[in-house]
Nucleic acid binder design. Structure first.
Length: 733
DNA sequence: CGGCAACTAA
């Protein structure tokens, strides 16, 4: 390529001027447009020098090579290298090291090594240059081997060498090697060098523990912002937000000015803690120093507000923002999705595409997550094809989100297909698959996946066991559940958290060991949560233990006096025990406290739109057809032997009104709509915001035989697959 | 002749 440029004839300039210009250009190391203009001009001058047959000395070469570092053009590097070879400059350590550096920037490690081997009199800098080249390009093993060769050759490392060696040790996760080189750095008094210090902090914060890093941090000079930012960032990333904020305060006391790096990191800590007041204070600081226009800082601010549930503030900041990137969009999408504003998240995604902003794997995984929340299978499938088109389906996080959406939309088989197709899986992939099977009540599949997982190099974590235990609890596998719980503690050294205990309480309770469930709650090292009392209450309903159930309900209401779900469960329990006076008193105290039972809401997707139905809904445009279908189903199921269970009504209703009350439950409306609107033979998928009621469960089992269709209902807890008169939950939910 | 830190997701 240089040769083709060499053919250019231009006005002659004195070599001194040319050299001066070359050196000037390399002064600005900024990348981008201006840089490439400078570089073209410089190449032009270089080429003319060559053309005119003027002396190309080592200074000219080092200058042009310095430029090539920022241009990252492998072709040019090779051309200049060839030129050097011809002129015999390759033996010069200065020129040789420059070319190593230029090759290193393009990732051409082998070419760099060739240039390194050509240097006859290697000095410490050329050794260091090559070690750095390996370390920067991720060839860590070679970096360390070359470092050892260098030492054998009698060369002492300097601060540059040490920083690269620490980087390579980090890359190989060789903490002990890092520690011994740290000793070497101490001996040579290089530990005070800012770059060595940063490399050490990087090493210890990632491989050792934060305490080692802290020791290093306390030793090194702290008048510069970088070590502070470094530690604050790491504390934030390690979820040690409090320490991050403390360090930020200490930094301010030391009169070191925070920059955009520092603010972005400390704001991340605010977000993790969801500390709105602190976030606002730091927001003021940001405004004061005028860093609010920095993308990283403004993204972090948007995230803080969204994590504190203040989406309005996030949206305002987003709309005011002058600098946006794809992360800005993602932050807002993720914020909406996490707060359950799925539609807003999806709308924003469409807007993002209209604005021609390219999505990333974060975009796709969070948008898929929003679809999973809505169980919008059709839309999810469309986005799935979009990820195939953009190749983001290869990203692990997107694959995980795809497993999740198919599982949560009721297509557990498709979830498995995605899982099998993934070329790389992480622990989240396995966890998602296990909890997917568990949600569907397919505990044997869930446990089989867990067995496979144990044969891989991936380590099971807390969430894996949560999936395994909930699989056991969903199907009442008492012995297995207990064995896994013990194994988790003993073989995997995982301390059970309250969610694990909740699974165990549900499992023990369901299996009829209510006394052991209570004992477990008493013995566990946590304050009982609402969830665990609710789990106990649910099992009390199954086993008709009214007194214990009442106790559990009181505990929930102590923690959360307005918990409507608990009132509903309590009423159900009294109804199951036929204690109608108590049902009435529960309803009275709800009335007194102004608590309304959350109305049952079911929804179903048809041709890309979601249709919602509440109890007794009459607002749907197809309502006449729907009621006609319900009428027909009522007749057919009665003939097939379905007997309505009026106890679930929990209210004093006139007898002739009772059947109608049951048939307008939201899931039946959605089901009737589904039967009208979906092709014969296809499965019908319905979602519900509450637990499916006992009578609907019985009716739908019967309907699945009458209409010969597979009916899938997802309620708050799990999936029910109805087919040929049975349900996958085995009537145990 | 050379190297450090930041925002989103699971």
């Amino acid at each position: 390529m240089v040769d083709s440029v060499l053919s250019f004839h231009g006005r002659w300039k004195s070599p001194r001027v040319m050299k001066h210009r070359l050196v000037q250009n390399q002064g600005s190391k900024s990348r981008g447009c201006a840089q490439s203009v400078n570089y073209l001009e410089a190449v032009d001058l270089f080429v003319r020098l060559h053309r005119e047959g003027l002396e190309l000395n080592s200074f000219v070469f080092t200058s042009i090579l310095k430029l090539l570092v920022s241009v990252e053009s492998g072709e040019f590097c090779r051309s200049v290298h060839a030129c050097l070879y011809k002129l015999g400059h390759r033996s010069n350590a200065f020129v040789g090291t420059s070319i190593i550096d230029a090759y290193s920037a393009c990732g051409l490690v082998d070419d760099a090594r060739e240039a390194f081997d050509e240097i006859i009199w290697k000095d410490m800098v050329s050794w260091t240059g090559m070690v750095t080249c390996y370390a920067e390009n991720g060839v860590f093993k070679e970096a360390l081997e070359l470092f050892s060769d260098m030492r054998m050759g009698g060369f002492w490392p300097n601060n540059f060498t040490l920083a690269s060696v620490f980087k390579a040790s980090l890359g190989l996760e060789a903490i002990n090697l890092g520690r011994s080189v740290h000793g070497c750095a101490l001996k040579m008094r290089y530990e005070l060098d800012p770059y060595v210090g940063a490399a050490l902090l990087d090493l210890y914060t990632k491989l050792g523990d934060m305490e080692d890093a802290k020791l290093v941090f306390e030793e090194i000079p702290k008048c510069d912002v970088i070590p502070w930012s470094f530690m604050i960032a790491r504390y934030s990333q390690h979820q040690r937000s409090k320490e991050a904020v403390e360090l930020f305060c200490r930094m301010r006391q030391s009169l070191v000015l925070p920059n955009h790096f520092t603010f972005a990191s400390v704001l991340q800590a605010c977000g993790t803690m969801a500390d709105l007041d602190l976030g606002k204070q730091i927001h003021c600081n940001v405004l004061k120093v005028g860093l609010d226009s920095n993308v990283f800082v403004s993204n972090a601010l948007i995230d803080v507000y969204s994590k504190c549930g203040k989406m309005e503030n996030s949206v305002d900041l987003f709309e005011e923002s002058t600098n946006r990137n794809e992360v800005t969009w993602n932050t807002l999408i993720v914020g909406h999705a996490q707060l359950g504003h799925e539609e807003k998240a999806l709308k924003l995604f469409l807007q993002m595409r209209e604005d021609n902003v390219q999505g990333t794997e974060v975009t796709y995984s969070s948008v898929l997550c929003a679809c999973a929340g809505l169980a919008a299978l059709k839309l999810g499938t469309e986005i799935h094809s979009l990820t195939i088109k953009t190749r983001f389906d290869k990203a692990i996080t997107v694959g995980n989100a795809l497993i999740d959406i198919y599982a949560k939309c009721g297509s557990i088989k498709d979830a498995r297909v995605v899982f099998e197709m993934m070329s790389n899986r992480d622990v989240v992939s396995w966890n998602t698959m296990i909890s997917g099977y568990s949600m569907h009540g397919l505990s044997s599949e869930a446990l089989r996946i867990f067995e496979y997982l144990q044969k891989t190099m991936i380590k099971a974590d807390k969430l894996t066991f949560l999936g395994v235990l909930s699989a056991c609890s969903n199907t009442g596998l008492l012995d297995k559940g207990q064995a896994y719980f013990t194994s988790m503690v003993h073989d995997y050294c995982i301390n059970p958290c309250i969610e694990h205990y909740t699974c165990m309480v549900a499992l023990l309770g369901r299996s009829g060991h209510l006394d052991r469930a209570v004992r477990l709650i008493e013995e566990m090292p946590f304050e009982p949560s609402i969830m665990i009392w609710r789990a106990l209450l649910t099992t009390c309903i199954i086993h008709n233990n009214v007194e214990l159930g009442k106790m559990a309900a009181l505990h929930v209401l102590e923690l959360e006096p307005h918990d409507e779900a608990t009132y509903a469960l309590l009423a159900n329990m009294y109804a199951a025990a036929r204690r109608w006076d108590d049902v009435a008193s529960v309803r009275n105290s709800m009335k007194k406290k102004g608590i309304k039972k959350e109305p049952g809401l079911s929804w179903i997707e048809s041709q890309g739109t979601v249709h919602y139905f509440v109890v007794g809904d009459a607002s749907h445009p197809d309502i006449r057809l729907i009621y006609g279908m319900l009428e027909w189903l009522n007749m057919k199921t009665k003939k097939a032997g379905y007997v309505p269970n009026y106890e679930v009504l929990l209210q004093d209703v006139e007898d002739d009104e009772k059947p109608r009350r049951l048939w307008v439950h939201s899931e039946r409306l959605a089901l009737a709509f589904g039967l009208i609107r979906t092709p014969f033979g296809s499965p019908i998928r319905i979602l519900k915001n509450l637990r499916i009621c006992l009578d609907c469960h019985a009716a739908i089992k019967c309907i699945s035989t009458v209409v010969q269709r597979e009916i899938v209902i997802r309620d708050v807890n799990r999936f029910h697959h109805f087919q040929n008169g049975t349900c996958s939950c085995g009537d145990y939910w």
